[in-house]
Write a protein that binds this DNA or RNA. Structure first.
Lengths: 148, 148
DNA sequence: CCATGCTCATTAGCTAAGCTAAGGACCGTG
DNA sequence: CACGGTCCTTAGCTTAGCTAATGAGCATGG
């Protein structure tokens, strides 16, 4: 029992390091392939959450995206500058605002949903179906871990 | 054939989005769990590469880490401030320097190799062996994709 | 030996995004 | 009404990503 736990622990630690390294390299590579002017990871992720949820308060969006509210204020500020997100007063609470994707934001979201020229999608296309399946499963596991 | 390719393309695009979302959430979560004062992802990754390679020029390290040289200059500067990395003149080229981990840097690396209290390692320990295997395989695939 | 083109690392300047602390407006409750 | 709590934003700081520029140094050809 002690030996089994030690083995699992060693495996988990090695995996933690391996995963961290892989993610940082992968993320950098994807970022480098992003055309200048396109939305950043954080912006696109926020827009996606907004689109899927319909409308959210900044607090809700920050929680969903796993950042603190001031960070989300900044990200949303950028999206708003680009006309992709709009704010309206909250119906019942004067402290709050409601964020929602604009028509243009929805168009950008839809475009990203089917970005045929995107470097990452092209690279993933070159993997075997098994490898893609592995990545899909890993993504699901990571989302679960991130939710805590 | 056309249908198969369309299916693969759709799958790859969906996977690209899924993977991006998972990675950004996961990365943020791991970052939030990092004790104040610990090395950042980028710093730890650079230190790891240095440790494993023994010694590198800034250019080599930047290439290995997939960033531009000025970025690596900054990251290394931080590591140097903390006494984890040292510079020596290049033996034959006056333009270059050699970077290597210090004794302290090696100790930090070794500590991170077996960080038993690290949040991520603890979380990974709670997964099934199959799930860990999936993540390990995914990490390998991501490294390969990142190398291009 | 000299001129030239190239390479190296760094600095400068900018952007983005992460955090905590603080401030002001607003809400809910006793 | 007073108070405690919540909301979003601003302020201030850090880290890290990029491109452009700079000055030192190297390699090569004449």
């Amino acid at each position: 029992m002690e030996r089994v736990m030690t083995t699992e622990r060693t495996t988990a630690e090695t995996l933690a390091k391996t995963l961290r390294d892989a993610i940082i390299r992968f993320s950098r590579r994807v970022r480098q392939a992003r055309p200048v002017g396109d939305l950043t990871f954080s912006q696109l992720s926020a827009l996606t959450s907004l689109q899927l949820a319909g409308a959210l308060t900044p607090r809700e969006l920050a929680d969903m995206e796993r950042v603190q509210p001031p960070t989300m204020t900044k990200i949303v500020g950028k999206l708003e500058e680009r006309g992709l997100v709009a704010r309206t007063p909250h119906p019942t609470d004067g402290r709050q605002v409601i964020l929602a994707a604009t028509d243009e934001g929805r168009a950008v979201y839809a475009f990203n949903e089917r970005a045929r020229n995107e470097w990452l999608a092209v690279e993933l296309e070159r993997l075997t179906p098994e490898e893609r399946e592995t990545l899909a499963r890993a993504a699901e596991i990571m989302q679960r871990v991130a939710r805590g």
